[in-house]
Write a protein that binds this DNA or RNA. Structure first.
Lengths: 341, 341
DNA sequence: CTGAAAGCGCTTACAG
DNA sequence: CTGAAAGCGCTTACAG
């Protein structure tokens, strides 16, 4: 089969009998006037030749592309997969392609990826759940984002804002606080917290919400009442084990995230500990696994899909004024909790 | 803050006191010789100025990019999320960015996306689970992929090959057949199948595996023994309902995919039907929800992560010779099945 | 080995 | 409104 050369704008122009400039205008500027029938002729030629514009040439000439970059922890994590789905849905409506990069919560990698996305003149960079407590890294990220932003790029951060760009602010602390109030209202007074790595700001926020919610009712957590584990099923199992093996195990286990609660639940079930009979368990986030678990897990459902959609919509807005959209979770009471007896 | 212009290769060349051509060679061709210390000087200048090559200019000049396109059904589906994770892991090792597009099993959309990825001169296009039974669409896809392939692009298909490119062939039929043999060995003789849309080749393959597996033992499915539903939880619920409401419900429910099995299980549990006491349930795929379910679901685990990794590795190989990598699933017997009594 | 120049395929002031 | 020309930032034959 012959190596058919790709058709260029030049070919379309010749076929339509106009100049390169005119062909370009007719094809890419719908508001441009033009002799009657000219536009139709150019479009017809383009269609007949099967012309497809070269996006790199366009990006080089205009210093902007038709792609957006999405920075997440890991696609395999349902939290981020759902959020990504929302971003992609809206991006598609605007004919934008989404490049997903996974940081696996590695700071240098995150920085390098952001730079690469900026190099590619992405129309927007969306940072979801990237925030780490590391001032050198934060400074470097802000510098990279600033420079990207100044050259016309759009920045959106989920949860924690950077120095530039719009923000979708998930109310982690508030949601946890309400959840805790609900558990106290149920009659609980003895709590154990399965937390995650403190370098994640999301973890800190949720933990703060727990402490505040308890303090509202005069309860304070002891040193041993909080254990720190990996944000995973395995982490949840380990955390439940640590807390339940104490001489006086808590009657209510607050997991920092649904996946952790799922792990805790599986450890309890395997050990024959009745849930919610002997101990109540709660999660946070609202992933499908929380409602599929047996017993189904009480949690705060975050509208993750909508968070993704909102982030992408913000990405299309002008940089000023700066938007900060607050997103609330919804407390969902399920079978994993009951009053202590 | 002043709008700082980005540094170009020209700036690096001047700073290092060499020509544009030399700077380009030192920076991008590691095998290029050169006066002693020249390369070091250029690299030092680039570092000092914070030079970042413009990938669009590079792509335009070389007609190749440093991105790969991944075509999937939906990121929110754990099957594809896991596979995507594998692709991204390997891509990252090779400094490649992954653009994910979701077709939602819409043929025209899939075609348009493939064209757009080709327009962008993606280094490779990986098609996962895209295969639809639609000859017009298949022809159009093959034409687009052929043209992309002829212009130097790399093509990899998961499950079903196209006319060009490498293939990761998941043994759907074989896996199902073995699963069915196992259920027959358990003593089952009365089966109900919750299948998916027949336009999906994956569904057809698995269904064929079921029929063959049964036929090996002289069992054939009646017309009413197979119901066709959506590949979702809800589909699984509907399917279980249809089959169990028959006068003589089957004793073993074979779901075409894990997510369908999870739905079936939840319908059964809600209706107080004992699993596996009254009816056994099986899935296919090996998503985490299958092992987290109560009772845990017997299934054929596909190494999805590895499928993604393999696909990306194949994408980096030369087009010839054509590789076809066979991937087998692993039968995992869990609590959702038991002999009928 | 090095450099001047052409070229990749577009867009967009700048003239007419 | 239209076209000739310059320019986007690289790479790479082509000479030297």
């Amino acid at each position: 089969m012959a190596e058919q050369p790709l058709v260029r704008l030049q070919d379309v122009a010749e076929h339509a009998g106009v100049s390169l400039a005119t062909a370009s205008r007719m094809l890419s500027d719908p508001d441009y006037g033009g002799r009657a029938g000219l536009r139709e002729r150019v479009l017809a030629s383009a269609a007949e030749l099967g012309y497809r514009p070269n996006p790199h040439a366009r990006a080089l000439a205009t210093a902007t592309s038709t792609n957006v970059g999405l920075v997440i922890h890991d696609v395999r994590d349902p939290y981020f997969a759902t959020l990504s789905g929302g971003v992609i849905t809206v991006a598609e409506r605007h004919d934008l392609l989404v490049s997903i990069v996974c940081t696996h919560r590695d700071a240098p990698r995150e920085l390098e990826y952001v730079k690469r996305l900026a190099d590619q003149r992405m129309r927007a960079i969306i940072l979801a759940g990237s925030a780490l407590r590391d001032s050198a890294h934060t400074a470097a990220m802000n510098a990279a984002l600033d420079s990207y932003h100044r050259s016309g790029g759009s920045v959106v951060s989920v949860t924690r804002g950077h120095t530039v760009g719009h923000v979708v602010d998930i109310d982690n602390a508030g949601g946890m606080r309400r959840l805790v109030h609900d558990m106290v209202a149920l009659g609980h007074t003895s709590f154990g917290v399965i937390a995650g790595p403190l370098r994640l700001l999301t973890v800190r926020d949720r933990l703060q919400g727990i402490r505040r919610g308890l303090k509202d009712h005069g309860i304070t957590l002891g040193r041993d009442d909080v254990v720190y584990v990996d944000l995973s099923r395995e982490g949840g199992q380990a955390g439940a084990q640590m807390l339940m093996n104490r001489p006086e195990p808590p009657r209510c286990l607050l997991a920092i995230a649904d996946v952790v609660a799922v792990g805790a639940l599986s450890w309890l079930r395997a050990g024959g500990v009745a849930v919610p009979g002997e101990v109540s368990v709660t999660g946070f986030g609202g992933i499908p696994a929380a409602s599929d678990a047996v017993p189904s897990i009480t949690t705060v459902e975050l509208p993750l899909e909508q968070v993704g959609e909102t982030a992408m919509e913000l990405a299309l807005k002008p940089a000023a004024p700066r938007h900060i959209v607050q997103v609330e979770g919804t407390l969902v009471r399920r079978d994993s909790v009951a009053p202590p007896h």
